[in-house]
Structure formats: structure tokens, C-alpha cells
């Protein structure tokens, strides 16, 4: 009877290996990128220039900062714009740069002017790219089956929208901005997005059960292994179930405090789910199966 290959660290033993290189900082960059872009997009939708500004700043400082901190050679960061033809890192970087410039133009330009319209469209499109490109980036690593799925960009999009919505609600409830749509509409959107995200996550995990052995190993780590507590409590419990519960039963009626709590919980879930997806990435053994 062939036993399954072990999960190994650096030792010279064939087996599944954990992805360890992309962790806290990359998770932070993805996180800020998605919520910033999401907020920016929601702000375009709800006509909130404060929201748009905050969105831009989150992307610039949060995402940009995390990336810079992570780079081995931050002083050469500009080189990462070189190869958008094949590299999602370069594409994302370009999108982020364009989003910054066009977003700034959009905020500065005369509303309704041609520049304003053009900037808004370009900023919207690039913000959308910023929101989802992590998904493509992860998807483009054939090495890690947990990531190498078309579900990744979808997950990113929905999480981005969810984050954007929560943040918008937060800004509104704290009176930091006004929006052109009903707050209840927003909070309903939030509930819908929470449910959708829950469904997408479940679909994603289900799709992994048909995946390769490495995908299953990742899944095992997430659902039964060392990452399971964080996954159930932080990513799902706090991030989706608790928020949904709060949003559904109390919601904006609970006042700013509750909205703040929901937002915080949402963001925690958001950070951790991608952090855990990164960490639970498993490489397949170099030479496939064990044979006797």
C-alpha cells in the first residue's frame, strides 16, 4: 500500500511543500488593493469624492507601501513596469499607476468636463483591474493548484466590491461623506455581497475537492490542518458569518458603532481569507506519485 507523500519543509525529502514566500505583506498589498479599488469603484457609483480619494489613498499608501516594503530591491521598483505583455505583476503595477494618475485627475478636474469623464472612465477601468488582477496573478502560478483557478479573479472581484461597500457604509455612517443612493440600498447590497461571497467561497472550496492532490493537500490544511482554526474563525466566522448576522439583524439601524464593527469584522475576514489562501498554497512533489 502506497502511503501519501508527506508535507515537508526544507528537508531533503520528496513531498508537498508549502508556499512560504508570499505571506503577510503580499496579503496586505492584495487586501489594500482590493478594498481601496472597491471603495473607489463604489464611490464612482455613489458619487462620493471623499470615498474616491480615500480609495485612491488606500491603494497608493496601503497597497503601494506594502509592495515597496516587500520588494527585495525597492529602489528599482520602476523596473516592474517593464513586462506587462506577460506579467500580471507588471499589469497590476501599470493599472495601479494609471489608476492613481487618472483618479487624481478625476478628483481635480471640473466635474462633467471631458477630462473628468475620460479620467473617470480610465480610473474606473484600472480600479477594476487593480481589484481583480491579484486573482489573475495567483491564477498564473501553475505551481499552486489552490490558486491556479479561474475562481480566483471572481473571488477577488466580489471581495473587492464587498470591501468597497463596507467602507462606503462606514464613511457614510460616520458622516464623512454623502452618497447619492439610499443607505438601505447600500446595506442591502452589503448583505447580498456577503451571501454571494459566502457562496463563491464555498463553490471555490468545492471546486478544489476535484483538484489535484496538491489542491487537496491545501484544502486539508485549510479545513482540517494547521490553518483551519484561523480559517473557520477569522476568515469565515468573523469575516462572513458574523458580518452577515450583524448586517442582517441589526445593520445600519444599530448606528455608527455597529457599522464600524461590521466593517472591522469584514476587513479582518477579508485580510485573513487571502492571507490563508496564500499560506495554504502547496506545491506538488517534483516527481509525482510514489511507486514501489
Amino acid at each position: 500500500m502506497a502511503k501519501t507523500m508527506p508535507l515537508v519543509g526544507e528537508e531533503f525529502v520528496a513531498g508537498y511543500r508549502l508556499q512560504t514566500e508570499w505571506a503577510t505583506l503580499i496579503a496586505a498589498a492584495f487586501f489594500f488593493g482590493k478594498i481601496g479599488a472597491g471603495l473607489f469603484l463604489m464611490s464612482l457609483f455613489t458619487d462620493s469624492s471623499v470615498g474616491a480619494l480615500v480609495g485612491l489613498l488606500i491603494v497608493l499608501i496601503g497597497k503601494g507601501g506594502a509592495h515597496l516594503l516587500y520588494l527585495g530591491r525597492p529602489e528599482r521598483f520602476w523596473r516592474a513596469l517593464t513586462k506587462p505583455g506577460t506579467s500580471w505583476v507588471a499589469r497590476g503595477f501599470w493599472a495601479m499607476m494609471v489608476m492613481m494618475v487618472s483618479g487624481a485627475l478625476f478628483l481635480l478636474a471640473e466635474p462633467g468636463s471631458g477630462v473628468w469623464w475620460a479620467a473617470q472612465i480610465i480610473a474606473g477601468v484600472t480600479a477594476f483591474i487593480v481589484a481583480v488582477y491579484d486573482g489573475f496573478l495567483m491564477n498564473s502560478s501553475p505551481s499552486i493548484p489552490l490558486w491556479n483557478t479561474a475562481m480566483m479573479p471572481v473571488l477577488c472581484l466580489f471581495y473587492s466590491l464587498l470591501g468597497g461597500t463596507s467602507l462606503t457604509l462606514f464613511l457614510v455612517d460616520f458622516g464623512l461623506t454623502t452618497v447619492t443612493i439610499e443607505e438601505t440600498l447600500l446595506s442591502n447590497l452589503e448583505i447580498i455581497l456577503l451571501v454571494t461571497n459566502l457562496i463563491v467561497v464555498i463553490l471555490y472550496l468545492l471546486s478544489m475537492t476535484n483538484g489535484t492532490a496538491a489542491a487537496k493537500e491545501s484544502l486539508r490544511l485549510l479545513l482540517k490542518g494547521s490553518f483551519a482554526p484561523a480559517f473557520y474563525i477569522l476568515a469565515i466566522g468573523v469575516g462572513l458569518v458574523f458580518t452577515l448576522f450583524m448586517a442582517y439583524f441589526i445593520g445600519v439601524a444599530g448606528g455608527a458603532g455597529v457599522v464600524a464593527l461590521i466593517t472591522l469584522a469584514d476587513l479582518i475576514g477579508h485580510y485573513f481569507i487571502f492571507f490563508l489562501f496564500l499560506r495554504a498554497g502547496v506545491y506538488a512533489p517534483v516527481l509525482g506519485k510514489l511507486t514501489l
Binding site: R17, Q19, E21, W22, H67, Y70, L71, G72, R73, P74, R76, F77, R79, A80, T82, S87, W88, V89, L137, S140, S141, P142, S143, I144, G281, Y283, A284, V286
Partner: peptide
Amino acid sequence: KCVGCRACYVACPYKNRVFLKK
């Protein structure tokens, strides 16, 4: 030319790349 983004690192299915830390 390398900026140390490690996209290559995670993309290598064989985990054959190494990042030289500070």
C-alpha cells in the same frame, strides 16, 4: 534588473528559486 518581487518564486512549480534576504 531583479526587484525581488518573487513572482517567479511562487510561479515556479518546482520551488527551485531562492530569495536572497537582506
